[in-house]
């Protein structure tokens, strides 16, 4: 099950600073982190990119923030990944430029929704996005996630 503790949701290796050339590259990278750590299937990045290319940037849900995902899948595990882009990513959304790309994977719908709830509980707090954008190391990101007491 997804937990209220953000640091448990983001497994080791699932937070990365990067300089992607485009939003879809950043989304692929975030999804790939989940695949590399054994949470999502190998083709997860393709799935996520396909959704972005076919349906547009509606997953840019707040200024500078996108949350990407495919369908929950029994062969996947529940987890989250974050790519912090050092470049401004232009998606065509009103919330451009995007700098934080979250990817989530889940084994089933309930876990998927529980994880969205946890992420939303964090991102709804004023200052969360700004705090993440101010980070330059993974341990700083972890510290911000740790401070997110329910």
């Amino acid at each position: 099950m997804a937990s209220a503790n953000l640091n448990e949701l983001f497994a080791k290796g699932c937070i990365e600073f990067s300089k992607p050339k485009s939003f879809s590259e950043a989304a692929r990278q975030a999804a790939q982190l989940l695949s590399s750590e054994g949470f999502a299937l190998e083709q997860y990045a393709d799935q996520v990119e396909e959704i972005i290319l076919s349906k547009g940037p509606y997953m840019v849900v707040a200024p500078q923030v996108a949350i990407v995902h495919g369908r929950p899948d029994a062969k996947s595990k529940t987890g989250a990944a974050l790519v912090l882009s050092e470049t401004d990513l232009i998606t065509g959304s009103v919330n451009d430029p995007v700098r934080l790309v979250f990817a989530i994977s889940a084994a089933n719908n309930d876990d998927h929704i529980e994880m969205l709830k946890t992420l939303s509980g964090f991102l709804v707090k004023e200052g969360s996005v700004g705090n993440l954008l101010g980070c330059s190391t993974i341990s700083e990101v972890r510290d911000i996630f740790s401070d997110n007491l329910p």
């Binding site: 949350i67 995902h69 929704i113 939303s120």
Partner: peptide, 15 residues
């Protein structure tokens, strides 16, 4: 509403 009905739309619903 969102593209797949399970992500962005769920966040909108919750909030």
């Amino acid at each position: 509403v969102c593209g797949m009905g399970i992500g962005t739309s769920v966040l909108l619903k919750m909030n």
